[in-house]
Design a protein around this nucleic acid. Structure first.
Lengths: 180, 180
DNA sequence: AGCGATATATACTGATCCGATATATAAATT
DNA sequence: AATTTATATATCGGATCAGTATATATCGCT
C-alpha cells in the first residue's frame, strides 16, 4: 500500500496537515498498522494535490509556523476505494529488537535485560494509551483493528514478561560454559 | 537494521547463497522478524564481499543454475557483533490487510469475509509450520524469538476468528442503514 | 547565555530498499 | 505450448527512509 493511498485514508476521516498525518501513523489510529515517514508523506501529498485528489489550503498561525491543511476530493475518495478493493500485499515487518534478540548469546545478560525491559515498558505504555482511547463512536473496522492491535500487543508483552528470566539464565549459563 | 547486517546474521549461522538468505527471511527462522528483498540482498552481499566481510565461492550444479555460496569472515563477525550492540531502531510494520480492514465499511461483506478467512488460514498455516520446527537444539535467543512469534500469531488468529462474525454483522447492518 | 529537548510545521536529499524484470536450468501442470 | 514451480544470480526505475534544513515558540539544564 503506497503512501499516497495511506494519506487518502487518513484524509477520508477528516482534514489534516502533513504533520498530523505523520502523527496518525505514529501514536494515532494507524500506529500499529503501517509506518510512513515525512520523506514520503510530503512528496505524496504534493503528487496527490497535482492529481486533484486532495486540496491544500495554506493557513497562518500564531506562535507556530504556517501550516497547510489538506482535504480529500471526490476524485481522491474514488481512488481510495479502488485501492481498498485491490488484493492486499504481504505484511512487512522490520524489527531490530527481534533480530538482536535472536542473537542473544552475543550480548551480555545485563544488556539483554535492559532491552527486554524497555520493550515490555513500551508495550505497556502503548496498551495504556490504546485502552484509554474512546472507540465507542468509531466505525466497526476501526474498532476491530484496534482490538486486534490490543490483542497482539498484550500477547507480546505477556510472553516477554513470562520468559525474560529464563532467557537471561540460559544466556548467563552459556557464558559460564564458554568461560570454563 | 540494514540488509548487510541481516545477511551477516544469517551467514553467522552457516554458509548460504543469496537465494537461501532470502528464503531465511521468508518462511525460515527470520520470517516474522525482518523482511528483505532480492533487490537489496544481492547488492548487500556484493558490498560485504568488497569490504572483506564475506567470501563468495562460485559452484557449478547439475540440473540447476550455478550458485555462489557466501561465508562470513572474522571481519564480518566483528561488524555483526558491533551492530548487535547498537541501540535498536523502532519496529516497522506495513500491513495492507490491517489498513484495508480499518476501512471495512467501504467493502462489501463477502469481500471482507474472504480477506479475513484467508488471513486466518495464513496464520494457522504459519503456526503449523512453526510448531513443527525442531528448536530444541537451537540457541536460547532463537527459541525465545520463536516462542514470541508463536504467541503473537496465535493471539492474532484467535482474535480474528473470535471477532470475524461480529465485524461482518456490523458492516452489513451499516450497509442496510445506508440503503434505507 | 547557550544549548538541547520538545512541540508544531513544511520540505528536501542522498542512501537504501522494493517490486518487477531478465536470465538460466529443470520439471510438473494446464 | 504456455504457465507454474523451484532453484539461482543480478539489475533497474521508482518508492521510501533517516536525517537534515528551516521556522516559531517554550522549557529545562549546564
Amino acid at each position: 500500500m503506497d503512501i499516497r493511498t495511506l494519506c487518502l485514508g487518513v484524509l477520508s476521516r477528516g482534514d489534516a496537515t502533513g504533520y498530523e498525518i505523520k502523527k496518525a501513523f505514529e501514536e494515532g489510529p494507524f500506529g500499529h498498522i503501517h509506518a510512513a515517514s515525512f520523506g514520503a508523506i510530503y512528496p505524496a501529498l504534493s503528487a496527490l494535490s497535482d492529481a486533484g485528489m486532495v486540496l491544500g489550503t495554506e493557513m497562518a498561525q500564531e506562535k507556530r509556523p504556517d501550516k497547510k491543511v489538506f482535504s480529500i476530493t471526490e476524485r481522491g475518495r474514488t481512488a481510495l476505494c479502488e485501492a481498498l478493493m485491490a488484493p492486499p500485499g504481504e505484511d512487512k515487518v522490520r524489527s531490530d529488537f527481534l533480530f538482536i534478540l535472536f542473537f542473544a548469546h552475543f550480548l551480555p545478560a545485563p544488556r539483554l535485560a535492559d532491552l527486554i525491559d524497555r520493550r515490555i515498558a513500551w508495550y505497556r505504555n502503548c496498551l495504556e494509551r490504546m485502552e484509554s482511547c474512546d472507540c465507542e463512536a468509531a466505525r466497526p473496522g476501526e474498532v476491530f483493528v484496534h482490538g486486534l492491535g490490543l490483542a497482539v500487543y498484550r500477547a507480546a508483552a505477556e510472553y516477554l514478561a513470562a520468559n525474560r528470566d529464563r532467557l537471561l539464565e540460559e544466556v548467563s549459563a552459556g557464558s559460564r560454559m564458554v568461560a570454563e
